Amino acid sequence: MTQPKVGIVMGSDSDLPVMRDTTEVLEQLGVEYEIVISSAHRVPEKTAQYAQSAEERRIEVIIAAAGGAAHLPGVIAALTCLPVIGVPIKTSTLGGVDSLYSIVQMPRGIPVATVAINGAKNAGILAAQIIGVKDPAVREKVRSFKQELAGAVAEKDKKLQELGVTAYLEQMNK
């Protein structure tokens, strides 16, 4: 087994349904990962140890997901020089805006790349793109993935042009 290149950290197991999108896209792109639960507030020592030892484990990018007072990505970014991608998790109280603001409003010098609320798939793609800077095989898989996305849009447009708006919408709603 090869060493994981991406570390995925969640503040709670309740984040796992969202973060499954990250693991799926990384698997699709052939990028190894590890995944752990570690809370910046409940187990700060474990979180610090994880962040500080990531380079030794050959992690190249860390994706950190958290909801509410979402300090996990920022704490990890403060403790490592590796790129950190934050995934704000949707909350029942403020719809994830609280999580988004907690992650995106980092102080100068401690950047966290931040994706959309529940944007776990984009976090995985971004991590693969970062790794692809030095790994041509991953870069080519990302290129193919994006070409597939473009092809799907072209197919939908072709279908729309053939069917027209009403028939297209009828097929969508079946």
Score class of each variant (00 low, 15 high):
R42D: 05
C81S: 15
E55M: 10
V36K: 12
T114M: 03
E34C: 06
P107T: 07
V61Q: 02
A123H: 08
K174R: 15
R139M: 09
L169P: 03
L26Y: 01
Q52V: 04
K5V: 00
Q28E: 15
P83N: 05
A77C: 04
S38A: 15
M1H: 11
L16I: 14
K158M: 09
K90H: 14
E162L: 14
D135M: 02
K121I: 09
G68E: 01
S144E: 14
Y101I: 12
A154K: 13
F145N: 02
K159C: 04
E45K: 14
A128P: 04
I117T: 12
G164P: 08
Q161Y: 13
M10I: 00
S12K: 10
V31P: 00
M19W: 02
R57C: 02
R57A: 01
Q171E: 15
E155P: 07
R20W: 05
I8G: 00
E32K: 13
K121C: 07
L169N: 10
L163V: 11
I59C: 02
C81M: 15
L169F: 14
L100P: 04
I131G: 03
E55P: 01
K156R: 15
Y50I: 15
D21G: 00
G164C: 09
S102R: 03
I76L: 08
I103E: 04
N173E: 14
